[in-house]
Nucleic acid binder design. Structure first.
Lengths: 223, 223
DNA sequence: ATATAAATAGGTATAAATATCTGTTTGTAA
DNA sequence: TTACAAACAGATATTTATACCTATTTATAT
């Protein structure tokens, strides 16, 4: 590796972003040439940037703008479309297995939990830039598990939740009753309850408490 | 300031801890001489440490050990008791106003949201060590608001939740029904519902979804 | 074109949560 | 020691959520 690696960081928490930057200066092969505190402006900023980063470290739980969600997953999808040459390394606080697989499927090149040590950050960036991916054993296992589950015929376990179900889930987390949700979505209360039942099945929850927990863990709603 | 400031860091996320350390090296007046990834061992480690830190940066949302909670607040109380000479600067992801006031009341000397810039970390540490406290305008306003609320007679708004209510809240977040909670706590279902109603009142929630959100925001349960 | 799987929409019956209540106990300030 | 506030325990009626169903539409793969 003779050339420096151009790194970009997309992370809303300023202190964490600065921390990553400070850590990366430990190795002089990294140049942090791009930064963003939100996902919305990244595509636009990249289009105007004099130099494109080789790799973007993207926080999974990016904040919404007003009512519009824009998580690391949204950004991943957009980047894979507009800037496929830029590698994407996801940073996340959780180690939610399903989410790992979802991200890799949608164009991310690697996944790091924020609990890892600096050495692993180094390895991950170098591995993604040189080999194209960085999959540690935990992520690999998660993907394999998910694959094997998909193969089983069974009922309808572990499927991603649908758009309509996500609507219901979000409103449920906002403390609306089924009746209120029905009004907002212009559907019958019975239908809302149907969606809720599917959500309980898919998320393995017993009641709304479980749904709220799931929604937070999976970045469907923010705190 | 002729002497270096001895800093300790209590933070479970290794990467964030390393990031803070790396940021602090920007100023040569800081020496990071103490680190811990959990709150439990801090008192013990400090007792054996050759040099005590002047100030401890403490993450508010420290992880529990098994079923035992030990947040930054617990640690703050313990430190104020055992090592009152060590200043405590709380680091938190949220800027929950009530929580700020609670921490300051219980012995913390300052409060920083993790969203601040490195310069503010510098200011906060220096201010705490030299002047004894670091209260930024947002925290100050939160405390004043809380004070003024306490003065009003009113009904029973904004009171801290009781031990029994916290029990019920935690179990509710774990998706147990009122009946199951009653069994676990050896009380009547009606009583559990009574506690739940008080929780709804105190937290300003409409249903369990709101309770779960409140519990997470206030570090009563962890994800 | 057609079989398959899953999303969507809906119905009915039961279980659970929530809104209002009444007491007793406990700690605390006047 | 008395008055007060709040935790704690409990009861009843009503609303809401959940379990268990069926039928239609939509997308996908064969």
């Amino acid at each position: 590796m003779n050339q420096k690696i151009n790194v970009g960081i997309v992370e809303d928490q300023l202190l964490f972003r600065e921390g990553i930057k400070a850590i990366l200066t430990n190795w002089d092969i990294f140049d942090v040439i791009f930064e963003s505190a939100d996902g919305f402006s990244v595509i636009e900023k990249l289009a105007q940037a004099p130099r494109l980063p080789d790799i973007l470290l993207v926080d999974l739980s990016l904040p919404p703008l007003g009512k519009t969600e824009y998580s690391g997953l949204h950004l991943t999808v957009a980047l894979a479309d507009k800037f496929p040459e830029i590698k994407i390394l996801i940073l996340s606080v959780h180690n939610d297995e399903n989410f790992m697989a979802e991200l890799i499927k949608n164009g991310a090149h690697g996944y790091l939990v924020k609990d890892c040590d600096p050495q692993e950050v180094y390895q991950a960036i170098v591995s993604v830039v040189e080999k194209g991916t960085y999959i540690n054993s935990r992520v690999l296992k998660a993907i394999q598990d998910r694959m094997s589950k998909k193969l089983k015929p069974g009922k309808q376990l572990m499927t991603g939740i649908s758009a309509r179900e996500e609507d219901v889930l979000k409103l449920t987390c906002q403390q609306f009753t089924a009746e209120e949700i029905a009004e907002k979505l212009f559907i019958s209360v019975k239908t809302v309850n149907g969606h809720r039942n599917n959500l309980l099945l898919k998320t393995g929850s017993r009641n709304v408490a479980g749904l709220v927990l799931f929604a937070i863990k999976n970045h469907i709603v923010e705190l």
